[in-house]
Design a protein around this nucleic acid. Sequence first.
DNA 1: TGAATGAATTTTGAATTCATAATACCAAAA
DNA 2: TTTTGGTATTATGAATTCAAAATTCATTCA
Lengths: 218, 218
Amino acid sequence: MEKIQPRSLYLEVADRVRDLIEQGALLPGEKIAEKELCERFGVSRTPLREALKVLTSEGLVENLPNRGSRVVRLTREGVQNTYDVMGALEGLSGELACNSISDAEIAAIRRLHQRMLGHYQRKELKPYFQVNQRIHEAILAASRNEVLSEMYNNLSQRVKRIRYSVEMGEDNWAQAVADHEAMLEALEARDGPKLGTILRKHLRHKLEVAAVSGIIDD
Amino acid sequence: MEKIQPRSLYLEVADRVRDLIEQGALLPGEKIAEKELCERFGVSRTPLREALKVLTSEGLVENLPNRGSRVVRLTREGVQNTYDVMGALEGLSGELACNSISDAEIAAIRRLHQRMLGHYQRKELKPYFQVNQRIHEAILAASRNEVLSEMYNNLSQRVKRIRYSVEMGEDNWAQAVADHEAMLEALEARDGPKLGTILRKHLRHKLEVAAVSGIIDD
DNA sequence: TGAATGAATTTTGAATTCATAATACCAAAA
DNA sequence: TTTTGGTATTATGAATTCAAAATTCATTCA
């Protein structure tokens, strides 16, 4: 028997608006028309406005008093800052994961890794990123730290709307794959500090990739 | 000429409620009576409820559908998790700070450090913690990363309501002071990786201290 | 005595209303 | 043509209202 989960309307609305931002249906800098979204979702302004305030405190939306809400613009500096923090959090997740990860979890990550290698060899960018993200999520889950997951997911959400270019440099990509190879080794050896170090460095290359995308404003 | 800052009512209310929680006027696990707070602040339920939703997404309050809001309880595990993440963030702040901190900023931190040593020698616990926090804030500011500051301040807020016991172990305290001494050296040498390592380890001892306080629930 | 039932009350969630601030529009003057 | 001033329109912020859910409390029955 499954437990029924009563969810507040404003949370539902927040999810929907978050999706719109992630999908690019609401663009950075764009003004959010309350009336239009209310009609679209079939709710009144109250829950929508509550949702927008949540998204504001999540850093996805900004609230100009008496002038409504807009989607925050990504600047190069902001993205760099975000990646730096994500790197630190990933580093911690690696260290912690080694303390308590099960053999089964490691095996699952190894399988994901092999799939990712396949996508790399066939130059399938999008599937590559999807599997890549699942690996990082698996390590995060193994760190058994809810606060860490919450923070990481928040930051991750902020930069998710960056669309990585297919032009991703061959050498960057090769480096990323090499990083992942080293990660797996450290994880299988349950060497927390080493895994942490690799992960902290791993995100450094992402920004160069992001820069070629059109979404960042400067 | 100073820029005028129009602030929304809900943000003002959020600040006030945040203070109430930090000061212990609203206790962990306590139900938040909307009506009472509205009367206290002289506002209607709309901005109060918006504020509560912001505090929920900040992790200070929880929202049970149709049953209102309560102040979240601190568990030992939750506090440990929070400190772990704060340690990682402080580590990053140290690394970054060394890249761009000015001589004047280092000198200011050195002065704070000397003041802190005085409080330590005279066993003035509360002033010690206050100066201590200002040192960490100064390093954070020197890291020039807004995202990092935002994340750190959020986590810091969550554990601020822990009242540290005067019974803080002499050896823990001595260790903390020794950590700070090493921090200053690394900072003055602008050795980012070293400062990062020290800071990442520095928070480990805090939990033992927190545990003796009454606020944590388990 | 105490558990169960059901009405009365309170509280919450969400829509609506109302006041005010911002914006758009248009005419007149430089 | 480009400003300036003023009005109309719209959007936003916050209070109020209304419906639904939870809670309280009295009453019944085992």
